[in-house]
Design a protein around this nucleic acid. Structure first.
Lengths: 188, 188
DNA sequence: ACGTTGATGACAGTCACTGACATCGCCGCC
DNA sequence: GGCGGCGATGTCAGTGACTGTCATCAACGT
């Protein structure tokens, strides 16, 4: 464990988010983040691969949650329904963190580099889901299609949940979005 | 027009692609690209916003093509079918450039930064398609969902077309993928 | 001829990120 | 209870992407 001030990573994360909100991502230097956390620039890069990654550190947890939920779906569930159930259950996890999610999303939306990073994280979620489906015996391209469309629904439902001040239940939005997806892809 | 050697941008693009293939994206410096093109580093950045953009310069054309194709679909066409027709027509455009597309894709696949850039370009295609659908009177979230799933199909069909040595007809793969999408989202 | 204009060159500067090496504080071991 | 190992941090020098600024130069119209 740590012998200096504990939780260096957490302090860096906190300092980074504060500064990104206060003066924007581009206007913040890594040296400033490290200074606010009482550390050096070099140490920042020992904890995070780059200046963006500090905002996306939790995405591994999200991926695990999704993968586990899909793996736990009953064998009888169709691929798209296994995915839909997993995404719904994520909605419940986000429920309590709505304000911090909104803040984070505001920072990301304001900067193209951060949006790029968000997209590749979502793509890695999709890849993990497709993998899980294949392990359940779903062939390609059905596995990839179900995973990609599931993540697309997640993106759209998340945006809606963040921007709609009246609807606090993300799982509900996810359900409606999957229904809408079925209607849309039915073709008429 | 130019008073020096003509087509500076084209020379830079050519030099960049050659070097990315020869020694890889990361191992290539912008100074080297500029030198091969007979120009300076500063001039490179006057033509391309950054080192990655040189590989994605044509994406504006692709976006225009897709948007026009969706806008030209008959009013009677369902949103997903308008999108499907547009993506299919793109397949025909790619038909002749299969080898260069494969080469380009190999470079992109080998580097995470380039994959990020590709994803944000695809996202901008999706946003443009959703916009076009809205102009046709399609409400959200149906417009966004149709656009996102359409781009997802495009991604998957493109990968398959690039990697399958036996199937030269991308439009055909796109058609099959949309059929598969409909089966997948039907839910059973 | 001359001034204008647009593309390029030259140059200095910032900042993200990396490699190498030194340091420091705790932990276990004898 | 000193000692060596070890992991986390600091220091420093360096590379390379990208930017701002000003000079230069070749065509073009007048």
């Amino acid at each position: 464990m740590g012998r200096w001030e504990p939780n260096a990573r957490g302090r860096l994360e906190q300092a980074a988010i504060e500064l990104y909100i206060e003066r924007g991502y581009e206007q913040t230097t890594v040296a400033e983040i490290a200074k606010r956390a009482g550390l050096t620039e070099r140490t920042f890069f020992r904890h995070f691969a780059d200046k963006r990654e500090v905002l996306f550190w939790g995405s591994g947890t999200l991926r695990d949650h999704l993968v586990n939920a899909v793996a736990a779906a009953p064998d009888s569930a169709a691929p798209i329904d296994a995915i839909a159930g997993a995404v719904e259950s994520v909605g419940a996890v986000f429920q309590e963190r709505r304000e911090s999610a909104r803040q984070r999303q505001t920072v990301i939306a304001a900067n193209a580099e951060l949006r790029e990073r968000e997209l590749i994280k979502l793509a890695s979620l999709s890849a993990a889901l497709a993998d899980t489906l294949r392990r359940r015996g779903v062939a390609d391209p059905a596995a990839s299609l179900a995973a990609e469309t599931g993540i697309a629904v997640f993106k759209i439902a998340f945006e809606q949940w963040i921007s709609d001040p009246g609807e606090p239940d993300m799982s509900q939005i996810v359900r409606e979005s999957f229904d809408e997806l079925k209607a849309v892809t039915a073709g008429r």
